[in-house]
């Protein structure tokens, strides 16, 4: 497999992770360090399961394939604490309120991307 293809998939996963979870990763290190790639794949699959991001899981599997990583196809169920944390905030519906401010995008955007506040 060409190194460029590895980098392309890693970069795609990098973008998805940043957009969906706010986690910033190192693309070059991902294709050169097996342990790091393994951890990123595990994290991506966990988030895909928890938050229902199918594309994140697909890209994690592609990276795992291309890097010949031996990782389980299905991520282990998330710990109870993590599930509780992922539960929506009580009270106002965030998305409805966000739309009323014209800010639905920023409500889900990673912190400090395209704005401080």
């Amino acid at each position: 497999m060409l190194a460029n293809e590895k980098i392309a998939i890693a970069a795609h996963l990098h973008v998805l992770l940043r957009r969906k979870t706010g986690r910033v990763t190192d693309t070059e290190w991902m294709v050169s360090n097996r342990e790091y790639a393994l951890e990123i794949v595990r994290f991506a699959r966990e988030k895909a399961t928890q938050d229902g991001h199918a594309d994140l899981g697909i890209m994690a599997n592609r990276l795992a394939d291309i890097m010949a990583l031996t990782a389980p196809a299905q991520a282990a169920p998330a710990p109870r604490a993590a599930q509780a944390k992922a539960a929506p905030e009580p009270g106002f519906n965030l998305f409805t309120a966000s739309r009323s401010f014209g800010d639905s995008e920023s409500a889900q955007a990673p912190r400090y991307v395209a704005g401080l506040r």
Binding site: F101, G102, D103, E105, S106, A114, G115, L116, R117
Partner: peptide, 11 residues
Amino acid sequence: CYWGATGLKRL
């Protein structure tokens, strides 16, 4: 101003 620094800023 919260809207100005978030929603309006993106607009």
